[in-house]
Design a protein around this nucleic acid. Sequence first.
DNA 1: CTAATATGCAACCATTAGGTTGCGTATTGT
DNA 2: ACAATACGCAACCTAATGGTTGCATATTAG
Lengths: 112, 112
Amino acid sequence: MKPDRAPAGLEASAPIFAALGDATRLELVARLCRGGPQSIARLTRGTSITRQAITKHLRVLADAGLVRGRRLGRESRWELEPERLDVAHRYLDLISKRWDAALSRLQDLVEE
Amino acid sequence: MKPDRAPAGLEASAPIFAALGDATRLELVARLCRGGPQSIARLTRGTSITRQAITKHLRVLADAGLVRGRRLGRESRWELEPERLDVAHRYLDLISKRWDAALSRLQDLVEE
DNA sequence: CTAATATGCAACCATTAGGTTGCGTATTGT
DNA sequence: ACAATACGCAACCTAATGGTTGCATATTAG
């Protein structure tokens, strides 16, 4: 029944893009992709910044719904929430299509 | 020959997402889509913020390559640069696919 | 020519962001 | 039991953001 992928929440997409709009965070997303669910300690290894910085970034990603973490023993594992990526994805689709439509409208105006 | 849409510049995408990660800017992009190329004055009409604020946002979008403006008489017209949207688009695609791959890898590990 | 319009530029301001350090606490590993 | 590991919390710092106001300048309308 395809729930309701209607307006794609134009305004609601901004936080998602904002969360992705940082090189460190993009890197985190990429690492979570390549390595699957991981602990903060592991995500910190190999980077030049602090564990706390990573923690903060993860929280930002989580607030945007892009990532989710839960405590397992003494460590907390974080993993990607791919549905949210899809929201951004659909928004870009929408915009592209609108732009094409706008262009052909302009074409029409010019040609008549 | 499809130039080289190779690595999609993982790190290079961050500025694009950052530029889109603001409600006002997203709104601007949307308006440029719906209305086609427009002047700053026109883009300002209907918003609650200042013309200068709009100008700044446009510059941010321009720095990310998402938008381009040129002076026409006493006004400056701004329009969308849809190729850049595509960069972000492709990045999300890439990530989604990697994630799927990572998931099936995990599946394999669990099942054997 | 003169007034109105459309911008640009710069200074200034409050808030948020990205990072750090320090310290306390829960979970292992030996 | 003890040391090491993996975190969480909070204070603090600097630089970037999002906005504003004031003023100067170029175009266009009457």
